[in-house]
């Protein structure tokens, strides 16, 4: 039985060596002495691929059974038995490991691994590929719209994919008439679904706040008529935020996203006003007041880290020290030519930062002053079903972006790319080929994702990032993948630590 070792993120840039298995099949390993981590794919008895991922982090030996979602924390002997389990019988494994552990311990560990396998919690086979084929052919409804309420901005952030809010086009504010037609389109295309999400996005939405208020009022009126429930959200850079807007948002917005990058020097360098002054001092007191007024829930302070602040864990902790409890600080996605872009050689430092952040979060949680970090939030016990996990975010089918002119795109990241123009809010989706392309976008449509241990937690990654780096929505953005895997490892480790 052949065993093919895959590389964990931390190993991906080490030079691997090759060994031969007993039956002379090529076995691709990495030097464990440097990292103490491994991820492997074993070929099951019926030829189907079963996948287990095991790694060490912060003193924990963690084993993830990919296809069942079971997570096990194991001792050293079990950690060493698992990779041998499908290759050798009990006696052979005892003989192989007897120099390092007591025979009785090895035999016990073997029996426990066998019990996990019998219980469907280890070496579970991947039987989902045929299943997802039928799922992707289901009829879908539109569940959410991202309204580009303002293609204009009062900041000049260096990394903005919207180019100061213009999205490769001209400055424009969405009119009430276009917004109203968008809500009508959503209601008409949502089938029997009751809960509908509308994100007020930009640019800077508060530059068109009267239309935001008018559209919320229209939505509240229409939801009674059509038995719908609108869940509105708002993203803002905080420049125009005031008490009246906070009061309105606390009444009407299910979630607000407040853009801030972290430490003052980091934030002001990347998020200046057009004339160069920083925005940190203006927005921080307002954001603190806003977060408190929402009871420290149903919001995120959301930042971006770049090549210029690879020590981003300090920015996360700075935001926590400012009193924020819902925090997301995310890697910039930028062309490789951008000076602030994350590069392959930055990855080891970023892994270290995620590890440091995870350890500090555990410490603070135990001290009763914990906070949430968006990319470490993982639900091991609940979470969505397999169908959702494999079919991705819903862009292009269930989620669409609307420009100030009423044009439809698969998501906010595709706005301005005419290849992805889908139609408009008056005539609906005219380019159904794009919708079908996105409907078929799932984990099994992506070669890189099929055997990845993270597939049930990332759903194949971001279609826009894939397109921007590979010209194909059915690929994957490699640096994003590497960081996602690391974050999942850290998130599971935090669960293990807090379960003690």
């Amino acid at each position: 039985m052949g065993v093919q070792y895959l590389l964990t993120p931390a190993q991906r840039f080490l030079v691997p060596f090759f060994a031969e298995t007993a039956n002379n099949e090529k076995c691709h390993k990495t030097d464990r002495s440097q990292q103490g981590e491994r991820s492997f794919v074993c070929y099951g008895k019926r030829g189907t691929v079963t996948v287990v991922h095991q790694y060490k982090n912060n003193g924990y030996n963690i084993v993830l059974d990919i296809n069942s979602g079971a997570v096990h924390v194991v001792d050293d002997v079990t950690y060493d038995v698992i990779p041998l389990y499908q290759e050798k019988n009990k006696e052979e494994i005892v003989a192989e490991l007897s120099g390092r552990y007591e025979d009785k311990e090895i035999a016990e560990a073997y029996d426990e691994v066998a019990a996990l396998e019998a219980g469907g919690e280890l070496f579970t086979e991947d039987e989902y590929e045929a299943y997802i084929d039928s799922f992707k052919n289901r009829p879908t409804v539109v569940k959410a719209l991202c309204l580009h309420i303002a293609h204009d901005c009062n900041l000049a952030c260096r990394y903005c994919f919207a180019e100061e809010g213009e999205y490769h086009g001209r400055r424009e504010l969405m009119s009430y008439e276009v917004g109203k037609a968008a809500l009508d389109f959503l209601i008409a295309n949502s089938g029997n679904r009751r809960n509908l999400e509308v994100d007020f996005f930009g640019g800077e939405p508060l530059m068109n706040f009267q239309v935001v208020k008018d559209l919320v009022a229209y939505g509240r009126q229409q939801e009674k008529i059509h038995n719908k429930n609108f869940r509105f959200t708002l993203t803002t850079n905080g420049v125009l935020l005031n008490d009246d807007i906070m009061e309105f948002a606390n009444r009407e917005m299910a979630n607000v996203v407040l853009s801030i990058d972290g430490r003052k020097e980091v934030h002001d360098f990347m998020r200046p006003f057009p004339k160069g002054a920083g925005s940190y001092d203006l927005i921080v007191p307002k954001f603190q007041k806003f977060a408190e007024s929402r009871g420290q829930t149903n919001y995120y302070v959301r930042g971006t880290f770049t090549h210029y602040n690879l020590d981003f864990s300090r920015d996360v902790l700075h935001l926590a020290d400012l009193g924020f409890q819902q925090i997301s600080v995310e890697p910039v996605v930028a062309p490789e030519t951008a000076d602030y872009a994350i590069r392959k050689e930055d990855l080891p430092k970023l892994y270290e930062e995620y590890d440091k952040l995870a350890v500090e979060m555990i410490r603070r949680e135990r001290e009763g002053r914990g906070f949430h970090f968006f990319h470490f939030m993982i639900d091991l016990e609940g979470g969505p079903c397999v169908a959702k996990r494999l079919s991705g975010c819903g862009s292009g089918t269930e989620y669409l972006a609307v420009t100030p002119w009423g044009d439809l795109y698969p998501c906010h990241q595709f706005v301005g790319n005419e290849k992805f123009y889908m139609g408009n809010v008056y005539e609906g989706v005219k380019n159904t080929a794009i919708r079908e392309q996105f409907r078929g976008c799932n984990v099994y449509a992506k070669e890189k994702c099929k055997s990845c241990f993270a597939k049930f937690y990332c759903s194949g990654g971001c279609a826009a990032n894939s397109y921007n780096f590979h010209g194909d929505i059915n690929n994957a953005y490699d640096i994003g993948c590497a960081l996602q895997k690391k974050r999942i490892e850290c998130a599971i480790m935090i669960k293990a630590a807090l379960a003690e």
Binding site: V73, G382, G383, E398
Partner: peptide, 19 residues
């Protein structure tokens, strides 16, 4: 078990619940 402790198969998935 003595050697194993088991801990536990629109979006923009890992933390989402049907609820």
């Amino acid at each position: 078990m003595k050697h194993v402790k088991t801990l536990n198969l629109t979006s923009c998935v890992g933390n989402q619940s049907c609820e």
